[in-house]
Design a protein around this nucleic acid. Sequence first.
DNA 1: TTTAAAAGCAACTATTTATTTGCTTTTTAT
DNA 2: ATAAAAAGCAAATAAATAGTTGCTTTTAAA
Lengths: 214, 214
Amino acid sequence: MKKQNEKMKIPVQERAVKSREKILSSAQRVFSQKGLHGARIDEIARLANINKQRIYAYFSSKKNLYHQVLIAVYSLAASNEKIIALREEDIPRMTFKIIESFLDFHQKHPEFWRLLAWENLNGGKSLKNEDWKAIRSSYVDHIKNLFEIGKNQGFVNVNVDFSTYILTIFSITYFYFSNQLTISHLLNLDLESITIRQQIAQQLNSMFAQNNNS
Amino acid sequence: MKKQNEKMKIPVQERAVKSREKILSSAQRVFSQKGLHGARIDEIARLANINKQRIYAYFSSKKNLYHQVLIAVYSLAASNEKIIALREEDIPRMTFKIIESFLDFHQKHPEFWRLLAWENLNGGKSLKNEDWKAIRSSYVDHIKNLFEIGKNQGFVNVNVDFSTYILTIFSITYFYFSNQLTISHLLNLDLESITIRQQIAQQLNSMFAQNNNS
DNA sequence: TTTAAAAGCAACTATTTATTTGCTTTTTAT
DNA sequence: ATAAAAAGCAAATAAATAGTTGCTTTTAAA
């Protein structure tokens, strides 16, 4: 992880903080749209309405700017997850609720799954273990708890492990957006229709629920 | 779709056909590794052990070479699908078999899911409808048939539509590889272990099977 | 054995793009 | 009002890279 580079200016005035934020949010859009290699510094500068050297003043290099963007976006996802309240009484509908909220998040934040996709294609070497440690949320653990309680209470299909469960949910909600462009051709399936999202959430909920009900 | 460019040389001798194939397979590796923009023509030439201009002689441009690679790889996937024989008596285990064979295919052909991923990120504009028409296999239709038969025979969970079914299978098998690098951090899940693949296939099979058995 | 296809070689063009430098202007805090 | 911080402006550097050109050598086929 790049640490505070000697050349990196630390903004002290309010105005400078704003500039830095403008850069970061523009970079977010451009990097998520074009990837690390496809993104252009000039485009980020233009979009942020600032001068190119401000970028180098505050972030010192394209790679480091990208690194900061990753941390910001992943952290956003981690913190957002905490917002979706899930209680014990939600267990029978938890799959439905989780899928809906994940789809909603991906829809609102394409930067997230896009940056994740670029990152995986590029070998995932931009973030180190220590970065991940700072990002990771406890939300998955919370879901796991409810899942296990649900098994004991008879609301959750006992044939399924939590790892299969969470992998399925992440896979579908991610794939739904990440592969929307090619999937329609490959599967003859139109994911744009509004009802299909509800269908998916509903049917997966029913599958993960106990064997003897709908 | 780029058609036979006037500048494109048509190989007549055996030797030339071989050269063209060497270029195509090297391009496949490099494009799938680095993407359209990250790939370097010089690297493709070096890997193919041929001279740079051979590429321009046979493919006329980087974009067109990429286009040819896409068609070749996607067609490979479509033709491979036909190999996995699935009969009516396989219905109770069909989910298991399909997942295993998809995972196996993705493992053997990372070019496929990687190129799919690049393509989706870049807006999926490299292939036109006519390209897809030539590529698409009838395998999905075949699976759909078995799925519906399974419902009638009581082997398949009637709460689930085929679109949810096929989407789930594609999602998981794709995501398993495409996001392996980040998923371990995000979900605290190690996908490298050998048993987990069998588990996933087994548990999804049980879920998609009728309500009243394992 | 001759001829045309195939392929190598090497230098060149033209463009793009990250990053730097020097200088001027604007804004903010004291 | 004045100094320091912040930001603009414009030109330059330096490297990478798609695509070209002209020429020579190798190979296969008749």
